[in-house]
Design a protein around this nucleic acid. Structure first.
Lengths: 185, 185
DNA sequence: CATATATTTATAAACCCCTTTATATATGTG
DNA sequence: CACATATATAAAGGGGTTTATAAATATATG
């Protein structure tokens, strides 16, 4: 078996952390006019950064969710910027907030057309969901690593649910091997 | 058997009484702007008090239902306030309306996790209802005292249907003894 | 015409779902 | 071209779910 490098690209990293003991979001909204805060619609305040291009959700509890980053490094840079903005707005924030990556979304290309109907039949309903008139992708739930792969007829795929980049590679390798074994690729 | 004091808290007392021979709710609504009266939606007029924090439902017949009180004393204070407000609005009201407690809702904590599935199996369907996907609590109907206990996996419970605080204590003691006897606690 | 439900109020417990953000994929509809 | 459709994920509120209980109306079945 030839072990080729998986042609994968991380598209989105979602992470959470706690930057302060608590935050007065109404006061923060006034200090940061570029932010969005509509408590009756959603309890978090939305703060978008241009660089790294991300969106942070800040909560009354001091917890923060960062989405949109393409690397872990960018998540850290984004959260650092959020902390600085909040600190400059007159709030006390933690110096080294511990960041937890909650989800990594990646895309990849198998460089071969896929017969999704054949794949759905060969692998079975326990792990697969495929309803083309509802959504063109085939949903494949892997147990180890515990991620979800969306397979498309074009051979492109999306992997979501991973917490580490390596899990994305593992998952894609598994899919490739299974498709090869069943001569579906 | 060690007779420990039950860790119980009354959360709501519902009581009814008659404060006048009859009431013109439309006139009362005008005299008490803070009240709510939408006869096509519900025949009673709703009057909320801040202290004691309660809600009273007044009917054309002069009957009144008081909800939200945490003690019998507060029910009395609330109904006294309602009578005063109605009297000040120019209505004739009874001096000493006889109050009947109709329902007492209480919460308690057994301070131990509960295996609701095991409890449901051990006690049986005649007295128990447990449909976790519909509601997380197990419904236990006691015949004496005639109350209903909602048991939760956390060990916390809700007792409703009692007319006297002592019935709440009796019911909880019975539940504890039964769970102990069946080694479910 | 007689029972049933529904309406409303309060209250605890603990679950569910939804709200919002980002992101690739690829279909369909307006 | 802009939306849903579908996936995962955290955050915190809101809503709904269940139980009992009175009151007085309106509908609805038997």
């Amino acid at each position: 078996m030839v072990e080729k490098k998986v042609d994968m690209k991380i598209e989105n990293v979602v992470a959470s952390t706690t930057i302060a003991k608590e935050l007065d979001l109404s006061k923060l909204k006034k200090a940061l006019p570029e932010s969005e805060y509509e408590p009756e619609q959603f309890p978090g305040l939305v703060l978008r950064l241009d660089e790294p291009k991300t969106a942070a959700l800040l909560f009354r509890s001091g917890k923060v969710v960062c989405t949109g980053a393409k690397t872990i490094k960018d998540v850290e840079r984004a959260i650092k910027k959020v902390c600085d903005k909040v600190a400059n707005a007159g709030f006390k924030v933690f110096k080294k907030p511990e960041i937890t990556v909650q989800n990594i979304v990646a895309s990849a290309n198998l460089h071969a057309q896929l017969n999704l109907i054949a794949i759905a039949q060969a692998i079975g309903l326990e792990k697969i969901e495929y309803e083309p008139e509802q959504f063109p992708g085939l949903v494949y739930r892997l147990e180890e690593p515990k991620v979800v792969i969306l397979l498309f007829g074009s051979g492109k795929l999306v992997c979501t649910g991973a917490r580490k980049a390596e899990q994305v590679n593992e998952a894609i390798k598994k899919i490739i091997e299974e498709l090869n074994a069943k001569r579906l690729l």
